[in-house]
């Protein structure tokens, strides 16, 4: 039965093609998953900084900050985040960065640690970007101790370097806690 023969022959090729496509697709997926890290990118001390999106809660315009007496300089004040009193911190001195004035592009990045939500002041927020891990370089041992503690390394992207912060280390730093136990 010629028709049957032809059909079975066809099925073989179709199957082989499908198999090829399947393997190809799989390979693509794997390389894709390895290459990109989704990060929130923002400006601190005139440089691009980032941390993984899972730490970020939201980005808001800088509201009126109420100054808190007798606390460290890092705490710039508190603001009302939907009924919760939340601190706004300027972490730039901790990272050894300059502190240019915050203009209209200034934002507060609200992040959540295990125990509290807090705000990080940034000169601008540049949004979520997928950063290629291929271009990642860990901190070199020559940088200062404080920096090495809080910075994991940087990405060499086309438009310059993006520094990857260790947000967990930052949020558990004693420097950001107010008052003794």
């Amino acid at each position: 039965m010629p028709l049957d023969q032809e059909e079975s022959y066809d099925i073989q090729t179709v199957l082989a093609k499908m198999r090829d496509e399947y393997w190809h697709g799989l390979a693509e997926q794997e390389t894709g998953a390895e290459e990109i890290m989704d990060c929130l990118v923002f400006m601190l001390g005139g440089e691009r900084h980032a941390f993984e999106t899972r730490h970020a809660c939201e980005v808001i315009r800088v509201p009126r900050l109420v100054k808190v007496p007798a606390v460290q300089d890092l705490i710039k004040g508190v603001f009302n985040l939907r009924g919760e009193i939340t601190a706004a911190m300027d972490v730039r001195p901790l990272l050894g960065l300059p502190q240019p004035e915050l203009g209209p592009a200034g934002r507060i990045i609200v992040v959540k640690s295990e125990h509290f939500a807090t705000g990080i002041l940034a000169e601008a927020a540049l949004g979520v970007q997928g950063l290629p891990l291929e271009q990642f370089e860990p901190s070199h041992p020559g940088s200062s101790l404080d920096r090495r503690r809080l910075v994991r390394g940087h990405f060499n992207t086309d438009d310059g370097a993006t520094i990857l912060l260790d947000l967990e280390a930052l949020l558990t730093s004693p420097e950001i806690m107010v008052g003794a136990d």
Partner: peptide, 26 residues
């Protein structure tokens, strides 16, 4: 309102409240 866990104890403050304009007052 409490000041949240980032503030373990703060001299001069007993807590905060939120005023009619939505801003906190200590």
């Amino acid at each position: 309102k409490g000041l949240g866990k980032q503030f373990r104890n703060v001299t001069f403050l007993f807590g905060a409240t939120i005023l009619g304009d939505g801003n906190p007052a200590l």
